[in-house]
């Protein structure tokens, strides 16, 4: 694997995760528990999709085969997607959405903090921009973690259940392979061991403050790097890609 291939792969991982979690959140549009939350989630979804547009646009440029960010988003199948398994998990109830977002926002908060000093100028510029937005996302989900965790018996129970069910997808966030190794050497990618330490500390603090238990599991679900996804991604892509695949090249 050469540097260009590694960079393309890395950008797909970042961009696909943003796109898929952004699409997931957009499913709340019109279904939020209260109007303010509906608006908040859709704003956050837009940030993610915007971030994906930048990253996949750059991925297409690095690849140099004339594809665009739209080609990458709409014309790749499930096995070509590199998003983290956590990001494709269904919305469930509001506690499940908040738990997923909190685990992921905390991750991107520290990940993009690292990427701000990437030696790749485009990645660094995207990271600086995104990190400001992520700060607002994390604030939002942290507040809801505390509100639901330290809320009623039912909200506490639902959030604990959501955390327990999602926990097996968290170890994958910090997996590193040849792609990471190559790019870390070049000062382009983030060292996920560093991100992991910061993530664990912050996640444990918030979970404890929310009067919840940090889940324990030996199950480590992984596979997104090889395009092996949970059963949920295919359905998501079917909906997201329907129009561009049925009407190729159609414009607004």
């Amino acid at each position: 694997m050469n540097l260009q291939q590694a960079k393309f792969e890395y950008l797909l991982r970042l961009g696909d995760s943003s796109l898929i979690i952004g699409h997931r959140l957009s499913e709340w549009c019109g279904h939020g528990p209260i109007l303010e939350e509906d608006i908040a989630l859709i704003n956050i979804a837009l940030d993610f999709v915007g971030n994906a547009t930048s990253l996949l646009g750059y991925a297409a440029q690095v690849e140099g085969k004339g594809r665009t960010e739209d080609d990458l988003a709409y014309l790749r199948g499930e096995r070509e997607y590199r998003n983290l398994l956590l990001t494709e998990q269904p919305n469930g109830d509001y506690a499940a959405t908040i738990a997923r977002q909190f685990l992921y926002d905390t991750y991107t908060f520290f990940l993009y903090e690292e990427l701000k000093s990437s030696k790749d100028e485009t990645i660094a510029a995207i990271a600086v921009k995104s990190h400001k937005e992520i700060t607002y996302h994390l604030r939002h989900t942290t507040q809801w973690m505390l509100r639901l965790g330290d809320g009623t018996e039912e909200s506490h129970q639902r959030l604990q259940t959501a955390l327990n069910e999602l926990w097996m997808f968290t170890s994958e966030l910090f997996d590193m392979d040849e792609v990471d190794g190559l790019l870390i050497n070049e000062g382009i990618a983030a060292d996920l061991d560093k991100v992991k330490a910061a993530w664990e500390k912050r996640v444990n603090e918030v979970i404890t403050e929310a009067t919840l238990q940090v889940p324990v599991t030996n199950i480590k679900q992984k596979g997104s790097r090889e395009g092996k996804h949970s059963e949920h991604l295919g359905f998501l892509l079917a909906e997201m890609q329907y129009i561009p695949r049925s009407y190729p090249g159609s414009k607004w």
């Binding site: 608006i39 704003n43 837009l46 607002y136 604030r139």
Partner: peptide, 13 residues
């Protein structure tokens, strides 16, 4: 503050 996210991404309510 009612909500950190307002009518557009750049605004709070």
């Amino acid at each position: 503050m009612i909500s950190q996210f307002g009518s557009t991404a750049c605004k709070a309510l």
